[in-house]
């Protein structure tokens, strides 16, 4: 008897994905950079590098520091600006073998709305991620994701410009991520990306100087995974839209933690710097895991760690 392969298909708003694995923004170029080393037909989608209204030179160097179980970065949203990007970059993306999700960053609500509108018009762009949580551009980049009211306003403004799936990327550098998530949902977000990098810093004890040109950076990699799993868990209890879980996922087991905590899909970033074959391996192992347990679809396990839980959350009945 032939048993059907368990389905890994997921839906984020209107966006149907063959696999629940996104490649994190800024970690995978436009996909083309990794095409010689990874099978792009075996990934869910590539989230493109963030683009802003005006061109940005990016941060001074060094921009990267390897830390225990992590990577500290401060790239600073280097990008050619939306006009150049739409005219000269996006057309090159037309024949990618997987869906592309555009990423929008900004410094004002107008910026976000403008860039979102221009980008969403482009045929190769299947959906939009609003990066309201970049920690590496002074205080401005992350301001939106740290304030429920600003989150609501920026999401509402972006929502008004497009019907394409709108994913809002949240910051872990907040006191109550659930309250931000609720605002984003109410303002029209189709899905939430949880989480962006965790703010961090490293100092060179020989030179007595910060090791990043930008002084502070965003930490990614396995070091932040438990932080991210908790954030997904908390957000999943607060909203009913899908969550794209991310933060240090390197294996199918890591990904499963996120699904069980409440993520509908996951995003793989830093792990691509360890081995570009990781996303394909995760997909194969997720399928095997579901098969072993006789489950038909990845959706069957989403949020199961949230069921019948005993502990502090049981007393928070007003959240559920």
């Amino acid at each position: 008897m032939i048993t059907a392969q368990p389905s890994l298909e997921v839906k984020l708003g209107k966006l149907q994905l063959a696999y629940p694995t996104l490649m994190g923004s800024g970690c995978y170029g436009s996909g083309d950079e990794f095409a010689p080393f990874a099978d792009l037909t075996k990934i869910g989608a590539v989230v493109l590098k963030s683009v802003t209204r005006r061109p940005r030179l990016g941060n001074p160097t060094p921009r990267l520091v390897h830390t225990p179980a992590g990577l500290l970065n401060a790239i600073g949203l280097q990008n050619p600006g939306i006009d150049w990007y739409v005219e000269r970059e996006v057309p090159k993306y037309a024949d990618r073998p997987c869906p592309l999700i555009g990423s929008v960053a900004g410094f004002s609500i107008d910026d976000y709305a403008y860039v979102c509108e221009q980008l969403a018009k482009c045929a190769p762009i299947a959906a939009i991620e609003l990066n309201i949580s970049c920690p590496n551009v002074g205080s401005e980049g992350e301001t939106f994701a740290c304030d429920p009211d600003l989150t609501a306003r920026v999401v509402r403004a972006a929502r008004a410009t497009t019907d394409k799936t709108l994913i809002v990327k949240l910051s872990p550098n907040v006191t109550d991520i659930a309250s931000i998530a609720r605002e984003a949902e109410a303002a029209g977000a189709d899905a939430l990306a949880v989480i962006n990098t965790v703010r961090g810093m490293s100092v060179d004890v020989e030179t007595w100087r910060p090791r990043l040109g930008n002084v502070t950076g965003g930490l990614s990699g396995p070091a932040i995974r438990p932080i991210a799993v908790l954030a997904v868990y908390e957000v999943a209890r607060a909203v009913s839209i899908p969550i794209v879980g991310q933060g240090g996922i390197e294996t199918a087991t890591d990904a499963l933690e996120f699904f069980l905590a409440g993520a509908t899909a996951v995003s793989i970033g830093t792990a691509n710097f360890t081995d570009p074959r990781i996303p394909e391996r995760i997909v194969a192992e997720l399928q095997a895991y579901l098969g072993r347990r006789g489950l038909a679809a990845i959706g069957d396990i989403v949020g199961k760690a949230n069921v019948g839980i005993v502990g502090a959350y049981q007393h928070g009945g007003d959240e559920g």
Binding site: G29, F34, F37, T61, P62, L64, N272
Partner: peptide, 17 residues
């Protein structure tokens, strides 16, 4: 030589002016 992350042009971490 510089600290690399992706090594293939995808992350813009290893830049020089």
């Amino acid at each position: 030589e510089e600290t690399f992350a992706c090594g293939v042009g995808g992350c813009w971490g290893c830049v020089v002016p």
